[in-house]
Simulated scan of single mutants.
Amino acid sequence: MAKFNPRICFLLGFVACASLLGVGAYLQFVEELEPCPLCISQRLAILATGVVFLLAGLHNRGRKVYAVVSAVTALSGASISARHVWLQHLPPEEVPECSPGLEYVFQHFPLADTIKLMLTGTGECAKVDWTLLGFSIPAWTLLAFLLLATWGGLQFVNGEEQPENE
């Protein structure tokens, strides 16, 4: 099996996460697609995964720990994305009610309620504003998280080969 420098691989994972955040910013600020609570939660999970990848790339120790943490962080994001995809496929009569704006919720609700709202989604999360090849943004994000989790997890077995004793 080919072995690659784990630090470079982790830094490539960071670049992937930064690119995903860049796409999110483009869709929000150029295409004017306003993110829902689950979209924001997914961005936070991408950011967290990217930070783990960056720390792993800069730090020269603990490759296996970073591999597990990056995979777990990405899988946490995948679970949020999966919830979002599920909401988008609910029949209209089963879609939860829309909530007040996130800014209002942050100002007037307890933190626990705000976090619950951000992780479970609301009616506006079920709306599909944009697709590419028939897949919505959360579906693409779910795929990205699964790829990031795989990439991070592969670094568990991707280490420097030990020289053989002669």
Rank of each mutant, 00 (worst) to 15 (best):
Q107K: 15
T114R: 15
F106M: 15
W86Q: 13
C98P: 13
Q28M: 11
F135R: 09
G57F: 06
L12E: 11
L38E: 06
A2M: 10
L75S: 03
W140L: 05
Q107I: 10
T131E: 15
V65M: 12
F53E: 03
C125E: 05
E161F: 02
A56W: 02
M1Q: 08
D129L: 07
E166Q: 15
R63F: 06
G50R: 07
F109V: 13
F29V: 10
L147S: 06
S81G: 15
S41L: 06
T49Y: 03
V65D: 04
C9A: 08
A126C: 05
P138L: 10
Q155K: 01
L111R: 10
K3C: 01
L148A: 07
L117M: 15
E124A: 05
A139P: 01
R7F: 07
Y26M: 11
Y104C: 04
W140T: 06
S99F: 07
L102G: 10
A144E: 02
G62R: 00
T120G: 11
P35K: 04
Y104K: 12
S79V: 03
L132T: 12
P37L: 04
Q88G: 02
A71L: 04
G13S: 02
A56K: 03
S81V: 05
M118N: 13
Q42G: 11
I46C: 01
D129G: 01
V23F: 06
V23I: 14
Q162A: 08
A78F: 08
E94I: 13
A45T: 03
G159L: 01
L38I: 10
S41Q: 02
A16F: 14
G77R: 01
A82G: 04
G153L: 07
M1G: 12
L87S: 05
L33K: 00
E160N: 14
K64S: 11
N5H: 12
R7L: 08
I40K: 11
P6A: 00
A18F: 13
A71W: 01
F135M: 14
L47Y: 09
T120P: 07
V85K: 00
P138M: 08
C125Q: 09
Q162P: 00
F145P: 00
E31S: 12
V52D: 02
T122M: 13
L117S: 14
S81L: 03
G62D: 03
E161K: 04
V65R: 10
G153P: 02
G159V: 00
P163W: 12
V157T: 13
E160I: 02
F109D: 14
L102V: 11
G159A: 05
C36E: 15
A16V: 15
G62S: 03
F135A: 13
V105Y: 09
F10K: 03
K116C: 04
E103N: 08
G57I: 06
G50M: 07
V30Q: 14
L102K: 05
L142V: 03
W151S: 08
E124S: 11
L146E: 07
V72M: 01
S136I: 01
K127W: 06
L143S: 13
H84F: 14
L154I: 04
P163T: 09
G57H: 03
V128I: 15
I46T: 09
G123P: 04
P96K: 12
V15N: 05
V85H: 03
F156Q: 00
R43D: 12
S19V: 04
R63T: 09
F106L: 15
A56T: 05
A67D: 01
H108V: 10
V95H: 09
I80R: 04
